[in-house]
């Protein structure tokens, strides 16, 4: 299954844009089919764009994807905390992985999505420039190191797929002590 980056809004930017969209969809489908053909263990990942790179995180850590419309910045938080949002009455914090990983600031986002990561005890959203879809990738195809990859600390990485999707380690992200903001009492 493949969801395109901008499925839910009426677009009116010309035929070329639509053609490009269709081409992208076709590429996505071809890739998904390819991946599914191989046998062996698979990971289901939610793929998204961040600073014009493809990232993935295992879908079992993803609660939902939500469009980012309003954002309330919080004073006194580290730069990687973008702020808080109201998701149907629930307050959630949003982490900017670009800042957390010290990725170079390149380009401008076109559409903001938040991918809500969660498990039993932790929950927060990460900002994505756009959502590419959900894809099954063979576990064995993930390389655990990639020499030209810069920026991201290796500990948050599950690996890199042959088509250069960077697969993040959801559990590490959720539970790394650097992610949780815990100001010392009275400091």
């Amino acid at each position: 299954m493949s969801e395109n980056a901008k499925p839910d809004r009426p677009r009116s930017s010309g035929n070329e844009a639509r053609r490009e969209l269709l081409r992208e969809r076709a590429r996505e489908m071809a890739r998904s089919a390819q991946a599914d053909e191989t046998t062996g263990d698979h990971l289901e990942v939610v793929e998204f764009l961040l600073a014009h790179e493809r990232y993935g995180v295992e879908s079992r850590y993803v609660r939902e994807v939500y469009p980012l419309k309003e954002l309330t910045p919080l004073p006194g938080t580290p730069p990687f905390v973008l702020g808080i949002v109201n998701v149907r009455g629930q307050i959630l914090s949003i982490v900017d992985l670009k800042k957390f990983f010290d990725l170079p600031h390149k380009g401008l986002a076109d559409l903001d999505r938040i991918i809500i990561l969660h498990d039993e005890h932790m929950e927060f959203g990460i900002l994505a420039d756009s959502l590419l879809g959900v894809r099954r990738i063979p576990a064995e195809g993930i390389r655990s190191s990639f020499p030209t990859l810069e920026g991201i600390r290796g500990e948050f990485l599950l690996g890199v797929t042959p088509d250069r999707t960077i697969v993040l380690d959801g559990a590490k992200l959720l539970y790394h002590e650097d992610i949780v903001v815990k100001e010392k009492e009275g400091s």
Partner: peptide, 17 residues
């Protein structure tokens, strides 16, 4: 509350909608 990721933020005790 601010959610589990923001356990304690200085000067901010929570959020109101």
């Amino acid at each position: 509350g601010l959610g589990p990721q923001l356990e304690r933020v200085r000067n901010v005790s929570g959020a109101a909608v």
